[in-house]
């Protein structure tokens, strides 16, 4: 399994042709206390860079952009009742959605962990 990152602070865990997507610990720290998460509908076809989810803190709403093109296979329903999970376990239990990867070539532009660490340093 490979983990990749976007400059917009999303992570993707790649298993075969499925990408599990969430936001990074750095992103949740910037957002502050998360109080609501809106996820895409299962089956929706999302294009790279399209707003696919919304994460709201006490202060503001922020879009989460689809890092790659694909079809939504599954969403993390737990975030509907426990949005605070994004603060406590951004890189794990608080995954947002899973995409069926449409074009693996889109993964080539993403960062590995070392590059992402440098990006947020």
């Amino acid at each position: 399994m490979t983990t990749l990152y976007t400059p917009d602070h999303e992570w993707l865990k790649i298993e075969g042709d499925v990408a599990t997507i969430g936001i990074t610990d750095y992103a949740q720290e910037q957002l502050g206390d998360v109080v609501f998460v809106e996820l895409p509908k299962v089956g929706r076809a999302v294009k790279k860079a399209e707003a696919a989810a919304v994460v709201e803190s006490v202060k503001a709403a922020s879009d989460v952009y689809a890092p790659i093109t694909g079809e939504v296979l599954e969403i993390n329903e737990t975030l509907g009742t426990e949005p605070g999970l994004v603060n406590s376990d951004a890189g794990g239990a608080a995954w947002f959605f899973k995409l069926k990867i449409a074009d693996k070539a889109e993964l080539e532009g993403l960062m590995d962990e070392a590059a992402y660490k440098a990006h947020t340093a």
Partner: peptide, 12 residues
């Protein structure tokens, strides 16, 4: 200061 270390929720 918009918030301190505890964050908006805990400060509230």
């Amino acid at each position: 200061p918009v918030q301190y270390t505890p964050g908006v929720l805990k400060e509230h």
